[in-house]
């Protein structure tokens, strides 16, 4: 009986989510038509482009890896009631660190340097979130405010690094771009002809490991208790600073790691274009849609990767600016929150 109602609730939640996504797509289509695009072209490119071209497959998996890695961190912190709005800043720091290590530790032998670049990016993201973590744990300063501030600082810091310390020496007029990573520093495809890199199984593995570390241990209860009521947590003898520090630092390291995967597995070079991606913000939506569950986030990440690339190719096909994706996902997010609310309300009564 209990399992039955739970199954019903799951079905209901899914139905609401589908409805929310439909609403978002409808809003996106309305905007395309408003901007003078063709609706048939829009529909076919939105749904079919992601799966009918090799480029589409590549993009979906790149976005999936970005979303999953970053949203795991955001979701982890959310379990402890902490909002990491700064995934974008940690992601940028990770991208910068890849080149910083590549250039300044370039004397290391290949396998060591390769690993150091990935590790360096994770450490970069971790260092970047250390500031809000200390301010939160030691001074009680709101982490939302501090992570938002640090996003702006990260963007400026990234510009600085790009225009000097990690700039390609080859560009004469000071154009801020790095050198391209040579092939041996790129993450290779699993099968040479299919554009899916080893980053995909690696990310899924991280998700599964986190699932066992977080969802299947007492840590889940601890984090949830801290997230729901610090008073209860204190009463239960849970070390709040410890839970907060662990989840925050892990979130930063994961977002930094996403930076390494983005550069080494897809972009290979860093320029200003990579700074305005907004993946860090979308990761928050993914974490919420995945209901902070380490595996649920994976499903949500894949789904949002599909929709994001679909919407981007829809924008290209109808010559509408690709920011239509943001408007769509904004509407989708409101719908999903609404769906969560309706499901929770049913549960309460």
């Amino acid at each position: 009986m209990h399992g039955n109602t739970q199954g019903l609730r799951w079905l209901q939640a899914t139905a609401y989510n589908v409805l929310a996504v439909g609403l978002g797509i409808l809003a996106g289509l309305a905007l395309v038509v408003y901007a003078g695009g063709n609706i048939e072209v829009a529909l076919s490119s939105l749904f079919l482009n992601p799966i009918t071209s090799s480029h589409g497959i590549q993009q979906i998996f790149v976005l999936f890896v970005m979303f999953y890695t970053m949203a795991l961190g955001v979701g982890l912190a959310l379990k402890a009631g902490l909002w990491n709005i700064g995934a974008q800043g940690q992601f940028l720091t990770g991208m910068v660190m890849v080149f910083f290590v590549y250039i300044y530790l370039g004397f290391l032998p290949w396998p060591v340097l390769y690993a150091s670049m990935i590790l360096g990016a994770a450490i970069g993201g971790l260092l970047w979130i250390t500031v809000p973590t200390i301010l939160r744990v030691k001074f009680g300063a709101n982490e939302i405010v501090v992570t938002i501030l640090l996003n702006v600082v990260a963007t400026n810091f990234g510009f600085y690094m790009l225009s000097g310390p990690i700039k390609s020496p080859g560009t004469a007029l000071g154009f801020p771009i790095t050198t391209e990573l040579p092939a041996r520093f790129q993450i290779p495809n699993i099968i040479a002809s299919v554009p899916i890199t080893y980053a995909v199984p690696a990310t899924i593995a991280i998700g599964i490991i986190l699932y066992f570390l977080v969802e299947r241990t007492p840590f889940r209860v601890k984090a949830n208790t801290v997230g729901e009521s610090t008073e209860t947590a204190r009463y239960a003898g849970i070390s709040i600073p410890r839970v907060m520090t662990i989840t925050m630092l892990a979130a930063g390291a994961l977002a930094g790691l996403a930076g390494a995967i983005y550069i080494m597995g897809y972009r290979y070079e860093l320029d200003i274009g990579s700074f305005s991606t907004n993946y860090g913000l979308l990761a928050i939506i993914v974490a919420l849609v995945g209901r902070k569950h380490m595996l649920g986030i994976g499903i949500a990440a894949f789904f949002f990767a599909y929709i994001t690339f679909g919407a981007e190719s829809m924008a290209v096909a109808t010559s509408v600016n690709s920011v239509v994706v943001f408007a769509m996902e904004g509407v989708m997010m409101i719908g999903i929150l609404m769906g969560n609310y309706l499901t929770e309300r049913k549960k309460a009564t």
Partner: peptide, 25 residues
């Protein structure tokens, strides 16, 4: 009574996209 932070970010995303679509149209 939706979550204020998530809702705020949704409104931000919407405005970010919608504003430019309106302007470029």
């Amino acid at each position: 009574r939706l979550d204020q932070i998530a809702l705020g970010l949704a409104i931000y995303l919407f405005g970010l996209g919608f504003s430019l679509i309106v302007f470029s149209t």
